[in-house]
Nucleic acid binder design. Structure first.
Lengths: 142, 142
DNA sequence: TTAGAGATGTAATGTTATTACATCAATTGC
DNA sequence: GCAATTGATGTAATAACATTACATCTCTAA
């Protein structure tokens, strides 16, 4: 039957948070999410953080370290690099426009490999790798 | 006379903060630095943050985004990749041991180049790139 | 039916970073 | 000399981000 592992039955809070992130154009901070969900009964930061933890664990949401914010994962479809992390891809990278806040999520095999090689050569065992490029997107750079 | 741009005459506060970071074995948060410098007259976070801003600008200190902490730059010597950022290198990357907190700073041409190519292909203009690998160093992984 | 695991609600607190405003010191141009 | 500018500093207050602690609640498996 080959059911793809895609939606690990979200709880109510997880679904609400995921939904909020999906509707959003760009990344959102935990507190912004909290505000958006007050109408749905959210009252405390922890409700958001707990959901975010799970969603991140499922690979459905990414945390942008340089922004202290979160985005919904952009590539549910074309899984590649079946992998140790998330739901089937290697390390993801982000290009973050500092003008319009657009976030482009991408994966680069070569970079991934190269960093993996470096780690191997040093005996370093990676658990999570963060790659974030801050700058201006094509539109905003023009 | 070709004076190498190396030590942009630090102010007192900058020197104190830089010194604290150099003495430290690993990364320190701004507030940890503040505590270490109370004896030297520091009283408010802003004194630390202002110094860190400048030191970062000079390329003498790096911010670890995934840790909200700071480290002294590890390679004052062998400049390479004369560059847009910092004092003469391209993007630096960090391997951060989650067990012993050791931080290994390194530079990888290929990764740098590859990300540069990606950006070029998308018309994205990078201003700052963050690469941080969390995991276990050789010693701790053993 | 009860023990365990996981999710939830809430309050309090801890940690990281910035805004606002006043002052001080060195430099520059007149 | 002496404004005017620029950059560094001091201080308080506040904002933004995240976690700890503890009490419930709800399923499910034994």
């Amino acid at each position: 039957m080959n059911a793809p592992i895609v939606n690990p039955a979200l709880t109510k809070n997880q679904a609400l948070v995921f939904d909020a992130l999906n509707r959003a154009e760009g990344p959102m901070s935990a507190y912004t999410i909290l505000d958006k969900l007050r109408d749905h009964g959210f009252r405390a930061p922890l409700q958001v953080y707990r959901a975010l933890d799970k969603l991140t664990e499922f690979g459905m949401v990414h945390r942008l370290e340089s922004l202290n914010a979160f985005v919904a994962c952009a590539h549910r479809e074309h899984e590649c690099c079946g992998g140790a992390q998330g739901h089937g891809h290697g390390t993801v990278a982000f290009a973050i426009c500092e003008s319009c806040n657009q976030v482009i999520e991408f994966h680069d095999h070569k970079v991934d490999h190269q960093l993996g090689d470096w780690a191997k050569s040093k005996g370093f065992k990676p658990s999570k790798t963060t790659i974030e490029i801050r700058g201006l997107c094509e539109k905003c750079a023009a």
